[in-house]
Design a protein around this nucleic acid. Structure first.
Lengths: 198, 198
DNA sequence: TGAAATAAGTCAACATGGCTGACATAACCG
DNA sequence: CGGTTATGTCAGCCATGTTGACTTATTTCA
């Protein structure tokens, strides 16, 4: 396969320098007073894509050995970290339909990773709890991601944590922010009364 | 649907305080000298998920009106921003198979968003160029993302850009970093000799 | 108390976008 | 000329998302 470096280099040393650039750099026509140039913002968009692409790689590989996919990982993660959350909450967090969730959730339940318990105050609810098996797998999936994050934070230098946290929070839809912070506030896995039977 | 805030609150004010926590907070067993607690890292993982989830929302909605999906967006983005890149380069960037790319690429070509031209130095290559139509759509898709990024960067305060850039770069697989920086260096869409015919 | 609303589950069909495997064509390179 | 490379394509499979319709248990409220 062509080395990107080469191709890209070749691309820019092309003759046709005439078609210089219809849209120079900065802001492209319409909106003017952008503090951050449009180009810079697109670079961040690109970097975000690359970062997220690789962020999911390690767990994806592990999941294959278990016959699971990324969707299972997400469920596993949230049930493990926010033990006892309801199905509706999980749907809300994942922003998928219940039919879509149902497939992976059923598999995780069948294979003994998740147990359900009726809510005490509202017995219609099915609260979700991880089994020990789930905790082990979730931790194994999280491990490479934690390492990656720790290294990246370190590489980015002191002060990154604060900036990054604020940035990521602000990236979330404004209406969703309360929900996100509330679920994140409940991080310390609440209770583990769920049947441990894996 | 249950308000997350409620549910979560109820969850934590549960009796059963006995099952306090097998794994307090910090690091869980194995590796010791973690500067950043495991919990904090998991919070970043979660925030990253939420941020990326919402980052893709606006363009996804627009794409539906065009009968396109997120895969088309990615192709559109990279061809637009790195005009003239080869199929192999695109595959490399997206990390998907050529069969998978072929589907969306064909549609984009058929609908007049992308044109191909044989490479001059290597005529086996099919270099990809955006048409005017593609540029317009790509810009429209990018707009809400740029706004979101700009606002988030602003909200996160001065100094965020540098930290964020370094962080995101470090999140990329080490082996991939040269490729990523080389393609990003070629940002200023090289040339637009591709037939403009939309 | 009884009807409406809510939480969850399920069936069925379909769309998107990944994947593997196999094979074809054209162009490059030594 | 022969092997490698860049691209394209057929065919089928899998994971995961969607809509729509309907059921059951439970809660809420007039």
């Amino acid at each position: 396969m062509t080395d990107l470096t080469e191709t890209v280099a070749r691309g820019s040393k092309t003759p046709r320098a005439k078609a210089a650039r219809a849209k120079p750099r900065g802001n492209g026509g319409a909106r003017k007073r952008t503090f951050l140039s449009e180009t810079k913002l697109l670079e961040f968009a690109e970097l975000l894509f690359f970062a997220y692409r690789d962020f999911t790689r390690d767990p994806d590989a592990i999941l294959k050995d278990f016959g699971f996919g990324r969707a299972h990982h997400r469920v596993l993660h949230f049930v493990n970290r926010h033990s006892g959350l309801s199905v509706a909450d999980l749907l809300d967090v994942l922003t998928i339909t219940k039919q879509s969730l149902s497939r992976v959730l059923k598999q995780l339940i069948d294979k003994g990773y998740i147990v359900q318990r009726a809510g005490r105050s509202d017995r219609r609810q099915r609260l979700l709890f991880p089994t020990e098996k789930a905790r082990v797998l979730a931790e194994r999936l999280a491990a490479p991601q934690s390492v990656r994050l720790a290294e990246a934070l370190k590489a980015a230098g002191p002060g990154t944590e604060t900036h990054l946290r604020r940035f990521l929070q602000a990236m979330v839809n404004a209406e969703e922010r309360p929900k996100v912070s509330s679920i994140m506030a409940a991080s310390p896995a609440s209770l583990k009364e769920g049947g441990e039977g894996g």
